[in-house]
Amino acid sequence: MQAHDLLQGWIAYTSDRSGTFDIWLYRPQDSFSFQLTQGLGAAFSVPYWSPDSRRIAFTGIGNVVYLLDIGTLAVSRIDQIEPYTLLDWSPDSRFLAYVKNGQIVIYDTFSHRSYAIPMAGASDVQWFPSGTELLFAAPDTNGNTQLFRIRIDGADRRQITQNTDGPLHDVRLSPDGAFALYTFPGASISIISTVDLTNGTIRTLEGGPLAKNYFPIWSPDSLSIAYSATAYKEPNYYSLVQIDNRIGQKQRTLAVSDCFAAPVSWSPDGGKIAYLSGCAGIEQASQIWIVDIREPKPVKVLSGGRITALQWSPRVRRVSFIH
């Protein structure tokens, strides 16, 4: 296959449409879909794109972290971690950061060497755009989850929040490194808040009607947040695909999914959102839909098998793809 223009990006998704869970690619421009892995995925696998869109990291079968080269389809195994652990690429697409056994691990995907920063209870570690600092969540001395920042050499740890509202989940750093979002306090009630990392100001988004807001994700320009808001109409739960700005003043509903909660992902230009639907009363989705935020008319683009996760690639100019 010749080189393809990826200005609109690809959508990587996790599906068992071939019989086992694997990572697949879908190209919105022409509806081309392609299976990337063979028997390596799991229902909990989430594909994490490198910033240059050349590789995908995911945790798959056996709880193994795999690196997948999009151009050659070569796969390497790098570690074994807990399912659902966030994997985050450094801005230069070289290093992965994640948490394992009470440590922050920095893994060099070029040299295949790693080092660890001891950090009991840490979660959701992510790179600041500078590439020299990390954001993460961890309990303070009173056991309350706080956000911290630390240099990648383990020095200069600073506490950002003064949270007393219980556990923080789904911590996500904005692409510009100026804000973070998180959900609290748990799964049955899940509220989204943002924190301005320069001054610590916290704002809470209105969210959906049942205070069950899941899968929050920043827009590429760091100004908006998309998420899934669970709603109920006799006899079924469903979810609203919503967006809001980072200070919670411009909530809009763009689409409806028939799933209790629907993972969402922004297009590289921030103009569209892909989301999962097709649950039809069962737990897992079977469809990918795309909605344009400027003209919300949702379109079903893919159907078949169970689909558990999706992530739209960052914008890149061109990448070779060998098949």
Rank of each mutant, 00 (worst) to 15 (best):
Y182M: 13
F184W: 11
I189M: 09
T194F: 09
V195K: 04
L197I: 07
T198K: 07
T198V: 05
N199L: 06
T201F: 09
R203H: 10
R203Q: 15
R203E: 12
T204R: 12
L205M: 13
G208H: 00
G208Q: 02
P209E: 14
K212G: 02
N213C: 13
N213Q: 12
Y214G: 01
Y214V: 06
F215L: 02
P216R: 08
I217E: 13
W218E: 09
P220D: 14
P220H: 10
S222L: 04
I225E: 01
Y227I: 04
Y227G: 12
A229D: 03
T230D: 09
A231E: 05
K233Q: 15
Y238G: 10
S239E: 03
S239D: 03
L240M: 11
V241H: 00
D244E: 06
R246L: 07
G248L: 09
Q249G: 12
K250V: 13
Q251V: 06
R252Q: 09
A255H: 06
A255W: 08
A255D: 12
V256N: 11
S257W: 00
D258S: 09
D258M: 11
D258I: 05
F260M: 03
A262N: 03
S265P: 00
S265A: 14
S265N: 07
W266T: 08
W266F: 04
S267I: 03
S267P: 00
P268D: 05
D269V: 05
D269H: 10
G270K: 02
K272P: 00
I273N: 04
L276C: 14
C279A: 11
A280H: 11
G281S: 07
I282R: 10
I282H: 14
I282Y: 05
Q284F: 15
A285R: 00
I290E: 01
I290P: 00
